[in-house]
Simulated scan of single mutants.
Amino acid sequence: MMMLLVALFLGNIPSFAFSAPSQPNINCLIINLDYINCTWTEHEHNYTFRSRFTHRETLDCPEYLRIDGVNVGCVFPYKTAQRFNTLETRLYSDDGGLVTEQEHNLKSYVKLSPPINLSVVEKKDTELWLYWDFTKNNGCFESEVRYRTDNNVWKNTTPGPRTSFSLPFPSKKRYEFQVRARIQSSCGESKFWSDWSEPVYWGS
């Protein structure tokens, strides 16, 4: 009779009560072709992080990101062309057990720093020229410019591999310009644009 009651009790428990806990998901992003930032979605346990690129040695995390003393991410250096290789990441529990192992194709997961040194030059009252620099020299970057007058709606330009932009016949208004950058398609386009640059102004 007791066995029957136990069987009936277990039979009335929803199936999700016995489901295994979900594994943390690891997300990785290359920042400005300088370093890789990997974070994971579960922050209740203090995981140990290890990673390796295909056919390379496994490396311990050199610098953890922490919230309230708990490891929530890892930052490690990026080397040229690594984004075209598969990154393997692993999380381990406190007792050394493997929690999850994941693979990442980082070719399109690059976020550049915003362009810098924006300047505006007026040429012969007929054109405004906007100039900017990237934070590093690289022939694979493309830019998008946006501008507006007197805090009106932004106008965006077509992205292209350039570090200047001209605006013909400017009106006597106050112009505001910003630029952002990303890896262009010929070099393996990134899904991510940089943040917009600091604005630069022209006019009254």
Rank of each mutant, 00 (worst) to 15 (best):
Gly203Met: 03
Phe76Ile: 06
Tyr47Gly: 04
Lys155Pro: 03
Asn12Arg: 13
Lys107Asn: 10
Val121Cys: 06
Phe169Lys: 15
Trp132Arg: 00
Asp195Ala: 15
Asn37Arg: 11
Ile116Gln: 05
Pro14Tyr: 06
Phe141Lys: 02
Leu5Ala: 14
Thr39Leu: 08
Leu10Gln: 10
Tyr175Phe: 13
Thr163Ala: 08
Glu88Thr: 15
Arg56Gln: 15
Ser185Met: 10
Asn46Gly: 06
Ser143Phe: 03
Tyr78Asp: 05
Cys74Val: 04
Phe192Val: 10
Cys74Lys: 04
Thr54His: 11
Ile183Thr: 01
Ser108Thr: 13
Thr86Tyr: 07
Ile31Asp: 04
Thr157Val: 09
Tyr109Gly: 09
Ser166Met: 12
Trp132Asn: 01
Thr80Cys: 05
Arg148Ala: 09
His45Arg: 08
His43Trp: 14
Leu10Thr: 12
Ala20Lys: 15
Ser197Met: 06
Asp150Glu: 13
Leu29Ala: 06
Trp154Tyr: 12
Arg148Val: 04
Asp195Ile: 09
Leu65Asn: 07
Ser185Tyr: 10
His55Thr: 12
Gly96Gln: 06
Arg90Asn: 12
Val145Glu: 00
Glu176Val: 09
Cys28Arg: 01
Ile36Met: 09
Tyr47Thr: 07
Trp196Gln: 03
Ser186Gly: 08
Lys107Gln: 14
Ser93Thr: 08
Glu122Trp: 10
Trp196Thr: 03
Phe9Asp: 09
Tyr78His: 08
Cys28Gly: 04
Asn152His: 11
Tyr64Gly: 00
Thr80Phe: 13
Gly139Ala: 12
Gly97Pro: 04
Leu33Asn: 02
Glu101His: 14
Phe177Ala: 06
Asp60Ile: 07
Thr100Phe: 05
Thr135Lys: 06
Gly139Leu: 11
Val110Tyr: 04
Arg182Tyr: 02
Trp196Leu: 03
Leu91Ile: 11
Ser113Val: 02
Met3Gly: 09
Lys124Trp: 11
Ile116Asp: 00
Asp125Arg: 14
Pro159Met: 01
Asp150Ser: 13
Ala181Pro: 03
Phe53Thr: 03
Gly11Trp: 09
Lys79Cys: 06
Pro114Val: 05
Ser171Leu: 14
Arg162His: 11
Cys74Tyr: 03
Tyr92Gln: 07
